[in-house]
Design a binder for these strands. Structure first.
Length: 426
RNA sequence: GGAGGGGUGGCUGAGUGGUCUAAGGCAGCGGUCUUGAAAACCGCCGGCCCCGUAAGGGGCUCGUGGGUUCGACUCCCACCCCCUCCGCCA
């Protein structure tokens, strides 16, 4: 959500900054109209309530002293109806205002590139050099199927399209990658590891921004108030929903390795083969809750934390800053990490690191008491994949493949693989 | 799934229709005292919204949402959450 003060005082600036983000700017004008009505009615309602409260106090005094209060009670009865009318209208207006507010995306930072899609993303840096292959590199699904470690046909039997069965070395590699990432982030980067619920409620999804606009991207459990988490960002940023934290406790750094479930509605025809786009995948997530002053630096930090995984694994990647149009609904600024995939001769997203500033904190009422005292301030929240484990497995298979179809295990993962140096057939 | 108990401010905890403008305690902040600290004493001390340049004023807030009433922390209804016991279960 955006600040009401900002919407009220500088609606034109809001509209200018929202342009190109795929929002109907009419929403802002409707908000302005309703807000004006709300305030005029609120002022009247509160004056009426003041009258009622004073009258009730007088009645109470009379009753206590044994005097007759019938006249006073009759007089205050007229107020009651007017107050009810005002409150009813206020209720309607508040609901409409909130509905509008929940649909407005975050404002992009000033240094976010203009543009409506990924073609305007800005490449910040390119790290590592794609390996020169002396043979035609195979896709990970070819490799994995031939090695007998990925089974898409049986996954289709068990569930359907966009699922995979990991078998043997692939399953262990996934587990090794997750353990490697978690160790890095907890031991070296100072994150606290959590195992959150994989089901979540509507209030949490509303606060982190998946609802109400992106319901169709989610899986919802029938006859239940629960949804499957599309990312552990949801539980992690909701950890302190409705709380007032001490500034001295910030930044909070949380990491979690969880499954993620996405309906992928509307992605028909994209990445239909392999592990890139599944209904269920696993991810190590990084979340930080910071002060307002430190979130910009925290975005760079979280991006570096995620990138360290790729560097340790010696996977070539690049960092891009998403354009306005490509930046997600709740983000003010997003850095994507894109890993090199030899079979596609392209960099593909493997991590997305976002500074949501106070957007989620306002929705979820996450605040902190400034160290010097004073009013609570909205926290800033950041999230990043550190990394998408399934896609990292893809990158390892493809970048470390050998001419004979085997795959060399990157050094840092070998301790997690029982010393295994190479994944071969059988 | 069945039965019972309970949700009050950062924490604890009183309160069963009218100074609740929520007692008391703890924690926190300021002060007195002290070489300093502790103790003691005094004062301050929730959040949100609205009007106002400000000083200040008003409204809302005792799990959430409805209801009864001139008036609800208090009574009624629904829901959520927590605890105990039984059942089931990893």
């Amino acid at each position: 959500m955006l600040s009401r003060d900002l919407l009220r005082e500088r609606p034109d600036e809001v509209k200018a900054r929202l342009a190109g983000r795929g929002v109907d700017l009419e929403l802002v004008d409707r908000w302005t109209t309703l807000d004006a009505e709300r305030r005029s009615i609120l002022v009247e309602a509160e004056a009426l309530k003041q009258q009622r409260n004073e009258a009730s106090k007088r009645i109470g005094e009379k009753k206590r002293t044994g005097a007759d209060a019938t006249e006073e009670i009759a007089a205050v009865g007229a107020l009651k109806e007017r107050i009810e009318r005002h409150d009813a209208r206020l209720g309607e207006i508040d609901a409409s205002l909130q509905e509008l507010e929940l649909k407005l995306p975050n404002l992009p930072d000033d240094d976010v590139p203009a543009g409506v899609d990924e073609s305007s993303n800005r490449v910040e840096r390119v790290v590592g050099t794609p390996r020169a292959f002396e043979f035609e590199p195979r896709t990970h699904w070819d490799l994995g199927t031939a090695l007998g470690i990925l089974d898409f046909e049986r996954a289709a039997k068990l569930a359907g399209a966009r699922f995979a069965v990991y078998r043997g070395a692939a399953a262990r590699l996934e587990r090794a990658l997750a353990a490697f990432m978690l160790d890095l982030h907890t031991v070296e980067h100072g994150y606290t590891e959590l195992i959150p619920p994989y089901l979540t409620n509507e209030a949490s999804l509303l606060a982190s921004g998946q609802l109400p606009k992106f319901e169709s991207d989610l899986f919802r459990l029938a006859d239940s108030p629960y949804w499957l988490v599309p990312t552990s960002e949801v539980p992690l940023v909701n950890m302190h929903r409705g709380e007032i934290l001490d500034e001295t406790a910030l930044p909070l750094r949380y990491t979690a390795f969880t499954p993620c479930f996405r309906s992928e509605a509307g992605s028909y025809g994209r990445d239909v083969r392999g592990l890139i786009r599944l209904h269920q995948f696993q991810k190590v997530e990084l979340v930080q809750i910071t002060t307002q002053e430190t979130s910009e630096a925290a975005l760079e930090e979280i991006t570096r934390h995620a990138a360290t995984v790729l560097e340790r694994l010696e996977l070539p990647y690049r960092v891009v800053t998403l354009s306005r149009g490509d930046t997600g609904f709740h983000s003010a600024k997003t850095h994507d990490l894109e890993v090199w995939l030899p079979s596609q001769s392209a960099y593909r997203e493997i991590s997305s690191c976002s500074n949501c500033r106070d957007f989620q904190a306002r929705r979820g009422d996450v605040r902190y008491r400034p160290a010097g005292g004073g009013k609570p301030k909205l926290a800033h929240t950041l999230n990043g994949s550190g990394l998408a484990v399934g896609r990292t497995l893809v990158a390892v298979l493809e970048n470390y493949q050998q001419a004979d179809g085997s795959v060399v295990v990157p050094g840092p993962l070998r301790p997690y693989m029982g010393g295994l140096e190479r994944i071969g057939p059988g």
